[in-house]
Nucleic acid binder design. Structure first.
Length: 939
RNA sequence: GCUCAAGUGGCGGAAUUGGUAGACGCGCUGGAUUCAAAAUCCAGUUCUUUCGAGAGUGUGGGUUCGAUUCCCACCUUGAGUACCA
C-alpha cells in the first residue's frame, strides 16, 4: 500500500464535513477556547501559497487545543464588502454581489482542500443583509450614545437630554465638539426640536461634521490618502483637491485613554502595542490662553512644557487658524494672505516632505504674556499644524529646536531660561535635567516642580490648566461608494434620524451604474425613489411608496472597517442569528477571542476600531468584555522567489546566469517561477511554450543547462512568481503544504517561498507512511516498547508541546522528522508508541494521521483523541558526558553519573588519567564545577 | 530624524537560566539500485589547511574559566511613523 495522498485527503475532508467533526457547541462541560483568523476579503485572484500561512498556524493551535480537552470555536467567514468588486462592477456592469459570490466559492474550494478544521456552520459574510442589519444596529447604538468623562463610559443620550432640561450644559463633563455654546435649562427647552438635534450631534458618539477630504472631480469620488501620489490620483493621474464635505464621523477620541490603558492587559507583541500607543499619541501638559492686545479673542495653546513659559518670545499660529484673519494688521495683510495662499497650494505630502525650509510671516499683532504682561509678537508658520492641539503654539526658542530655528531665521531674540546651559548653537530640550532660571517664581525649580507651580498660577489667573492631549483623531465613517453597508439614516429638514430597529436592515438598492451621479452624489443617488416614508412607518423599499411625504435616505455607505469591527461576536451565536446580533448566553460563554492571528497591516486600523466598538457595546450593556482579542499574533508574509533570465540587448538570445558577464549589456526578464527546478535550472521546452517570443529564441547554456537568476520579492502576478496552493495540493498533498508552510521559518517572520524545498517534508510523510504500513498492510502490533522507543516518543511529546505553546511550529516539524527517523532505525512496531505519535502530529498533518489512526483500528476521529501525556522518567539519564576544559579551552569529555555531588565530580575528574596527562604533574589553581554541565580546570 | 525588530554555511533556518555553533530541510559531491531516467537508499558537505591544526555567529570593544546568548559603541537591512508643540 502506497501513500496515496490525493485519495486520503479527499476521503477525510468529506468525512469531516459529513460528520460535522469540527462543529463547536455553545453548551459544553469542557473549558472554552476561541481561535480566530482575520477573515479574508474574497478577491478575484484566489489564494496563493502565502495566504493560508496564518490559517494553518491557527488550525494547528485549534486542533491542539481540542486534543488538550478544550471546546474550541474556530470559525471562518468573509469580509465581503470592498472596492475591487465595485471597480469590477464599474468596468463590466456585473453586480458586485455576483462577483463576490463567485469569488467566495473559489475561496471556499481552496480552503477546503487544505483541510482546515473550521466550523463552517457559523460562517459570516459582511455583505449579507442578515449580517449588516446588525452593523446598522450598532451604528444606531453609537448615535444614541454620548461619552461621560466623569464615569468614563458611554451612556444613553436620553440621560444627557434630561440633564440639559434640568440644568443646561454648563456643568457637564462629556466628550463633545470644541465649538460648544453654553445654555441654561430654560434656553434648552425654548429651542426648536431641530435646533436641539443640531446641538445633540455635537455630543453623539457618531456625528455629522464637515470634514476635509481628498476630492477628485474627474473620478467624481473621494480618495483615501494612499490613493493619491504627488497630488494626483493614482488611477489616471487626475488632479485632487481638498474639499470640505459633510460626513459621518466616529468619536473614537472619547475612548483614547481607555484604548491606551487597555493595552496593558493584552498579550500582544510590544512592537504592536507601541504602534497603537504612538497612534493614540498621548501627551501631558497644559493649555494656556494668551490675551491679544487690542482684541477680545484669546489664543489658546497646548504645551508639554508649561515650565518654560517665561522663555516665550513669540507665538505661532497655523496658517489655517481662525484668528489669523481677525488679528492681522492692515500693513501685514498682503504678506499674510500671500503666505496662506502659498501654503494652501502645497499638498500635505509636499509640506511633510519639506521639513527643512523655514517659512512664516508676522501678523503685526501682539499677545500679552500672562505673567510679565510683556508683548509677544504673533506669527504664522506652516510648521504648526492646524490639526494637532489647538493649531497654535507658544514658541520657546531656547527649549524647542523648531522654535529655535524659526527664531534664528527671522532674527527673533532668544532668551535663556535654563541654569548653566549653553544655547548659542541649539535649543536645550532635556527636560529631566532642566533647572529653570530667569523665570520669576519658577527660578531654581526642576521640570516637575515648575510645571506643577505654573499650572497652579495659571489657574489662579484663569488663563490655563493642566491638559492631556491625544493625537488620535475621530474617524471619518462615510464613503461615496456603492458596495458597502447603507446607513440606517434618513433626513428630516436636513437633520439625521435613525430608522426604527424593526425596519432593519436597510438593504442596498439596485442601481444601473456603480459610479457617482452627474450631480456628484454617491452611487446610491442613482437608486430611484429610494426613500423612507415616515407616515406609514413600515416601508423601506421603493416599490411600496405611496403619496405620503417621503424623506431622503443617507446616500453614503459605511467604510470597510464597519463590518469587521464586530464580526467575532457574530460567530458566537449558533442558533438565533435572525433575532440578535449574538445571544446573551453565547456572548457570556465565549467571552473574547483567546487567540487572534492575522497580518500586521491592521495594527492601527481594524484592531483599534474593533477595540473601540467593543468598549462601546460593553458600556451600553450588550457585551461583558472590555477587550476583544486576548492574544494576538501577526504572521509574516511569504514572499515570492522570482526567476530571471538574461536577454542580450537588441537580440532574441538569452544567456545563462553564469555567463552573463561575458556580454556588455543584458536585460533582466522575469519568467514564470513554476518552470524552474531546485537547482535554478529552467525547463527550456516549457519556456518556449510559455510565451511566443521564446519559441524561436536562442539560449546560451552553461554545462548544458540554463540557470536563472533569483530575486526575493512580494508575490505578484506581474513578477510571475505566484505559486498556487491548488497545484501544490495536487502534486504533494495538503499535508505536505501545511508542513512546508510551517517549516519555512518562524511564523512571525517574512520568508521566501521556494517550491523546490517541499520535497523534504513530502518524503518525510512517505517515510512516516512506511513506518506504519508495508506492502502487506499495517505493520503495527502490541509489542512492548523498548527503552529507546519510549525515549524517542517522550522527548517528542515534550518538544512538540513546548513548540505549540510558543508558536514555534517550524521546529516541531524537524522534531517529527527526527522521531520518525529514529523509530524507523529502531524498527519500532509498538502500537503504544506509534499511536500517540500520530496524535502528536495530527494538528500539523491531519489527513495522513487520521488515515493511519483508523488503520490502527480506531473508529472515531483522531481529533477527539487525547494529547499524549509526557512522562519525564523516560528521559532521565544515568550518566552524562562532562566536557572538561582547561583555562576555558575544551579538551575532552568524561562520562560521569548524573547524581554526583560537586565535590565528588571534582575528585573524580582530577583523578582521571586524561586529566593527569593534561596537567603533567602540576597542581591546578582552581577547579570550577557546574553540575550537569562542565568542569573547568584553571591553572 | 524618531521608534521597534533583525544580522549565523551556497539557501531557508536550529541552538535561552552563558557550557561541544551550524539541528532539520533544500542544494551540492560521491556511491548503491536502474538499459536509462525518476523515485528510493547509504556516505559526505562552515571556511582555510602544508592534514597537524587554525579561524569562525555584521564590525570594534567589555564582562566571564567560557559569549550566537549579557553590556557599550558602530555598521547594515527590514517595518512603522513623520514638523505632535
Amino acid at each position: 500500500m502506497n501513500y496515496n495522498f490525493n485519495d486520503i485527503e479527499a476521503k477525510w475532508q468529506k468525512y469531516w464535513a459529513e460528520n460535522q467533526t469540527f462543529k463547536a457547541s455553545n453548551n459544553s462541560s469542557k473549558p472554552k477556547y476561541y481561535v480566530l483568523d482575520m477573515f479574508p476579503y474574497p478577491s478575484g485572484a484566489g489564494l496563493h501559497v502565502g495566504h493560508p500561512l496564518g490559517y494553518i498556524a491557527s488550525d494547528i493551535y485549534a486542533r491542539y487545543k481540542r486534543l488538550k480537552g478544550f471546546n474550541v470555536l474556530h470559525p471562518q467567514g468573509y469580509d465581503s464588502f470592498g472596492l475591487p468588486a465595485e471597480q469590477y462592477a464599474i468596468q463590466t456592469g456585473q453586480h458586485p454581489a455576483i462577483t463576490t459570490e463567485t469569488n467566495i466559492k473559489t475561496y471556499r474550494k481552496q480552503l477546503d482542500q487544505i483541510g482546515f478544521s473550521f466550523d463552517w456552520s457559523r460562517e459570516v459574510r459582511t455583505s449579507d443583509p442578515n449580517y449588516y442589519k446588525w452593523t446598522q444596529w450598532i451604528f444606531i447604538q453609537l448615535f444614541e450614545s454620548y461619552y461621560c468623562n466623569n464615569d468614563n463610559k458611554a451612556k444613553d443620550i436620553k440621560e444627557l437630554i434630561a440633564v440639559f432640561s434640568l440644568e443646561g450644559n454648563a456643568n457637564v463633563n462629556v466628550a463633545c465638539d470644541d465649538d460648544i455654546e453654553l445654555f441654561s435649562a430654560e434656553q434648552w427647552k425654548a429651542k426648536q426640536p431641530e435646533e436641539q438635534q443640531k446641538i445633540l450631534l455635537k455630543y453623539r458618539l457618531t456625528y455629522l461634521a464637515k470634514t476635509e477630504v481628498n476630492w477628485c472631480p474627474v473620478l467624481g469620488t473621494v480618495l483615501a490618502n494612499d490613493e493619491i501620489v504627488n497630488g494626483v490620483s493614482e488611477r489616471g493621474g487626475h488632479p485632487v483637491v481638498r474639499k470640505k464635505m459633510t460626513q459621518w464621523s466616529m468619536r473614537i477620541s472619547a475612548y483614547a485613554e481607555r484604548l491606551l490603558q487597555g493595552l496593558e492587559i493584552l498579550d500582544w507583541t510590544d512592537s504592536l502595542k507601541e504602534t497603537q500607543r504612538n497612534w493614540i499619541g498621548k501627551s501631558v501638559g497644559a493649555s494656556v490662553s494668551f490675551n491679544i492686545n487690542n482684541h477680545d479673542e484669546k489664543i489658546v495653546v497646548f504645551t508639554t512644557r508649561p515650565d518654560t513659559i517665561f522663555g516665550v518670545s513669540f507665538m505661532t499660529l497655523a496658517p489655517e487658524h481662525d484668528l489669523v484673519k481677525k488679528i492681522t494688521t492692515p500693513d501685514q495683510k498682503v504678506a499674510i494672505e500671500a503666505y496662506i495662499e502659498k501654503t494652501a497650494k502645497r499638498s500635505e505630502r509636499e509640506r511633510m516632505a519639506d521639513v527643512k525650509t523655514i517659512s512664516g510671516v508676522f501678523t503685526g499683532a501682539y499677545a500679552e504674556h500672562p505673567f510679565t504682561k510683556a508683548p509677544i509678537p504673533i506669527w504664522i508658520g506652516d510648521y504648526v499644524l492646524a490639526g494637532y492641539g489647538t493649531g497654535a503654539v507658544m514658541s520657546v526658542p531656547c527649549g524647542d529646536q523648531r522654535d529655535y530655528a524659526f527664531a534664528n531665521h527671522f532674527n527673533i531674540p532668544i532668551s535663556n531660561i535654563f541654569e548653566g546651559v549653553d544655547i548659542s548653537e541649539e535649543a536645550y530640550t532635556d527636560k529631566e535635567k532642566t533647572i529653570i532660571a530667569n523665570s520669576d517664581f519658577l527660578n531654581g525649580m526642576n521640570y516637575k516642580k515648575a510645571t506643577k507651580r505654573v499650572i497652579y498660577e495659571l489657574e489662579q489667573l484663569g488663563q490655563g490648566q493642566g491638559k492631556t492631549n491625544y493625537r488620535l483623531r475621530d474617524a471619518v465613517f462615510s464613503r461615496q461608494r456603492y458596495w458597502g453597508e447603507p446607513f440606517p439614516v434618513y433626513y428630516v429638514n436636513g437633520m439625521p434620524r435613525m430608522i426604527d430597529r424593526e425596519h432593519l436592515p436597510v438593504q442596498l438598492p439596485e442601481v444601473e451604474k456603480y459610479l457617482p451621479t452627474e450631480e456628484g452624489e454617491p452611487p446610491l443617488g442613482r437608486a430611484e425613489k429610494w426613500a423612507w416614508c415616515t407616515e406609514s412607518n413600515a416601508v423601506v423599499s421603493n416599490d411600496k411608496i405611496d403619496n405620503e411625504t417621503i424623506f431622503p435616505l443617507e446616500l453614503n455607505t459605511m467604510p470597510g472597517w464597519a463590518g469587521s469591527s464586530w464580526y467575532f461576536f457574530r460567530y458566537m451565536e449558533e442558533t438565533n442569528r435572525e433575532g440578535v446580533f449574538a445571544g446573551e448566553e453565547a456572548l457570556k460563554y465565549w467571552e473574547n477571542v483567546d487567540l487572534y492571528i492575522g497580518g500586521a497591516e491592521h495594527a492601527t486600523g481594524h484592531l483599534l476600531y474593533s477595540r473601540f466598538w467593543v468598549k462601546l457595546l460593553k458600556d451600553r450593556g450588550f457585551v461583558n468584555i472590555e477587550e476583544p482579542f486576548k492574544k494576538l499574533i501577526n504572521q509574516g508574509m511569504i514572499l515570492g522567489t522570482s526567476a530571471i533570465i538574461y536577454r542580450i540587448s537588441g537580440t532574441n538570445e538569452y544567456v545563462s546566469k553564469g555567463l552573463k558577464e561575458d556580454y556588455d549589456e543584458v536585460e533582466e526578464i522575469r519568467v514564470d517561477v513554476n518552470m524552474v527546478n531546485a537547482s535554478d535550472e529552467i525547463a527550456i521546452e516549457k519556456l518556449k511554450n510559455w510565451q511566443p517570443q521564446y519559441e524561436n529564441a536562442k539560449f546560451i547554456l552553461e554545462e548544458g543547462k540554463y540557470i536563472v537568476g533569483r530575486e526575493v520579492e512580494k508575490m505578484s502576478k506581474r513578477w510571475f512568481n505566484v505559486v498556487n496552493p491548488d497545484l501544490i495540493c495536487e502534486q504533494y498533498g495538503a499535508d505536505s503544504l501545511r508542513l512546508y508552510e510551517m517549516f519555512l521559518g518562524p511564523l512571525e517572520q517574512y520568508k521566501p517561498w521556494n517550491t523546490a524545498g517541499i520535497t523534504g517534508v513530502h518524503s518525510f510523510l512517505k517515510k512516516l507512511w512506511k513506518l506504519y504500513v508495508s506492502k502487506d498492510g499495517v505493520n503495527v502490533n502490541n509489542d512492548e516498547p523498548t527503552k529507546d522507543n519510549l525515549k524517542t516518543l517522550h522527548k517528542t511529546i515534550k518538544k512538540v508541546e513546548e513548540d505549540i505553546e510558543n508558536f514555534s511550529f517550524n521546529t516541531s516539524v524537524s522534531t517529527f522528522m527526527i522521531a520518525v527517523n529514529e523509530l524507523t532505525a529502531q524498527k519500532c512496531t509498538s502500537k503504544s508508541i506509534l499511536e500517540p505519535l500520530l496524535v502528536l502530529m495530527s494538528p500539523y498533518a491531519p489527513h495522513i494521521t487520521e488515515e493511519l489512526y483508523h488503520q490502527l483500528g480506531n473508529s472515531e476521529s483522531i481529533s477527539i483523541a487525547k494529547f499524549p501525556v509526557f512522562d519525564a522518567s523516560h528521559l532521565v539519564e544515568s550518566s552524562k558526558n562532562y566536557p572538561i576544559s582547561f583555562n576555558g579551552k575544551m579538551r575532552f569529555t568524561i562520562e560521569l553519573p548524573m547524581d554526583m555531588s560537586k565535590d565528588a565530580i571534582e575528585k573524580e575528574v582530577l583523578a582521571h588519567e586524561k586529566t593527569k596527562a593534561q596537567l603533567e604533574g602540576r597542581i591546578p589553581k582552581k577547579v570550577i564545577v557546574v553540575p550537569g554541565k562542565i568542569v573547568n580546570i584553571v591553572g
